[in-house]
Amino acid sequence: MTTQSKAIAASVPATAGITLAFITGLALLMASGYAQATALHDAAHDGRHAMAFPCH
């Protein structure tokens, strides 16, 4: 295996890990900042105002 193909082989799981982290981050932010469900909204209310999410 040449050095270059090793580097490519190593970067495939790296890219998968980066994608996974990115999507999980977006999902967390959707729930905490974007979702309009009443229970979530009430719990997150003060934080959303303080963090300037468009809230209601």
Binding site: A21, F22, G25, L28, R48
Partner: peptide
């Protein structure tokens, strides 16, 4: 108030994941 702290930690963890992904 404890929900506000939890919200802050969850939100910054979400942003932290995006930041860590972009730095990597």
């Amino acid at each position: 108030h404890s929900m506000t702290v939890a919200f802050n930690i969850v939100t910054y963890t979400g942003y932290g994941l995006l930041l860590a992904a972009m730095i990597s």
